[in-house]
Nucleic acid binder design. Structure first.
Lengths: 210, 210
DNA sequence: AACTGTTTTAATCGTTGGTTTAAATCTGTA
DNA sequence: TACAGATTTAAACCAACGATTAAAACAGTT
């Protein structure tokens, strides 16, 4: 088994288990036995459990933010006005597409993102902000441009409302979908849900202040 | 120290610590030493850590749902049409008021609610659904009535979008507020934020399907 | 084939967790 | 004041955790 093999097997197993149960509830023993590698491999290759957690986030956030940056470049240089709906579509399409292209599950990353916000892991928040804060500010800046006349504080609160609706819904997608299927017999796919989310979130961002 | 004293001291400490760090990350030793009671008191009075977690939720959800039911009764029997904005205002006012009346912190309960959704605690989700599912369905039913013509599946997804925006934002209120204060020098209170949230969430729920 | 640095392995360390126990203490009642 | 049940206490139990170690196995180079 080559080194890269062991490293990626650990990352694969950790990604799935962290998303399912959270960080503290997932032991290194569970991760390594799922991955089929020795317990000591995590400390050998990553140093510590904390650094493993960061590596899991790095592996999906780096290509995600890179692809999003390209997508935003394309929209901006296209010359035409950047709309709220267009930006949300870009965000969701990149989240779906760039990850699905790697054969990875988009919902899993939403769950991980949700955990990054809610779990008590100071090091993780610091890691994400320092590494991906620029991408976040770029997107927020473009969205603010698409909403002229909105005062900055109101805009930022609504940005968090939008993030909350997105992360909360998609990270619990399976559970919500199961409830709707049971109550209405109607299946919902992730792309369908994102199509519902774009106009809803856009309306929330755009509503006139009163 | 009387029994009720010990029990409520444990609940007080557990409530704060759970909201700060999550369930797994908070040990019974931390809880009992914060509360100034013996370690064994938790198992003596509650049976186990799981049952303590449920008791923390019961102590704030029971008065909350009770007050909300009274508030909804008042709105319905008043005769006039029940509006989306009115229902959201009721929800938020009860969340703020009925808890603040007990001298307890509303944001803390939002964090706990967020944890109930995101943390890996199957027993807690089952407990809440079985105990408070009726209250949830009552509110959702009235909200659906206030949105005639919206197909049920779209309505339910938007209901979750609204819950996500609310729970996510308010459970991270302190962190978000700190960022906004640093960037804009503008302070936001919780009531102000709820005043921003009502029209934004209402617009999201009411936007025409396309 | 012999050597060298890298990786894997099994075993162990020290710590912390939830829970249990039995004795001590308290509280209310007769 | 003496008794009975409820509560509190200090101590211990045992399982699980992250981390470390030294030896074994491996891979690439000469």
């Amino acid at each position: 088994m080559s080194q890269t093999d062991t490293v990626s097997r650990i990352l694969d197993a950790a990604e799935v288990l962290f998303a399912e149960r959270g960080f503290t509830e997932t032991s290194l023993r569970t991760i390594t036995s799922t991955a089929g590698v020795n317990l000591a491999a995590v400390n050998y290759h990553f140093g510590s459990k904390k650094e493993l957690i960061q590596a899991v986030f790095e592996r999906f956030l780096t290509p995600f933010t890179q692809t999003l940056a390209d997508e935003l470049d394309r929209r901006v240089t296209a010359g035409q006005a950047v709309t709220v709906e267009g930006l949300l579509e870009s965000l969701y399409r990149v989240g779906m597409g760039s990850l699905a292209a790697q054969g990875r599950d988009p919902q899993r990353f939403m769950r991980l993102l949700g955990l990054a916000y809610t779990q008590y892991q100071g090091h993780l928040r610091r890691f994400i902000v320092s590494r991906y804060g620029d991408s976040y500010r770029r997107f927020a800046g473009l969205l603010a441009q698409a909403l002229p006349g909105l005062d900055p504080v109101t805009f930022y609160w609504r940005l968090y409302f939008m993030l909350g609706a997105t992360i909360f819904t998609l990270s619990s997608f399976d559970a919500i979908e199961a409830i709707l299927r049971e109550d209405f017999g109607a299946e919902s796919s992730l792309p369908e849900t994102l199509e519902r989310l774009v106009p809803a979130a856009a309306a929330m961002l755009k509503v006139d202040a009163d």
